[in-house]
């Protein structure tokens, strides 16, 4: 690829990304009423998306080979316990991450 082609490719990726972010706001501008169905989706989609993001962030993990997701399961368990107990976002995240790093660098390395 020439430099111009690279720049064009990057521009196209920027355009595509921005389209996915701007489209809902362009199709449903503030001054016009949003259809009931879209309002409904606006309420119920987000919780489902958070579930999707959890799975998405784990997509590279294999249940059936390697460590069989054991470090992930243990560390997520710890995040959940810490968060139920302390409800301090940073404590839960730091605890789980340190646990995971220790596991994959020692026991499961």
């Amino acid at each position: 690829m020439t430099t111009i082609q690279r720049i064009l490719t990057i521009a196209v990726i920027v355009l595509g990304t921005m389209l996915t972010r701007f489209l809902p706001f362009l199709v449903f501008p503030k001054d016009k009423p949003v259809p009931g169905y879209i309002q409904y989706l606006g309420k119920v989609l987000a919780p489902a998306v958070f579930g999707l993001l959890v799975v998405y962030s784990l997509k590279g993990v294999s249940l059936f080979s390697g460590n069989h997701a054991i470090p992930e399961i243990i560390s997520i368990g710890l995040v959940v316990l810490l968060h139920l107990w302390k409800r301090q976002m940073l404590v839960s995240i730091a605890g789980g991450t340190i646990c995971y790093m220790l596991l994959v660098q020692t026991v499961f390395s």
């Binding site: 958070f50 959890v54 992930e72 560390s75 995971y100 994959v104």
Partner: peptide, 18 residues
Amino acid sequence: KGLDFVMTAMFVVIFMDQ
């Protein structure tokens, strides 16, 4: 190695808060 788990941990916490 393993530091990228911070993102998973954050999404789990956000899921629980929701």
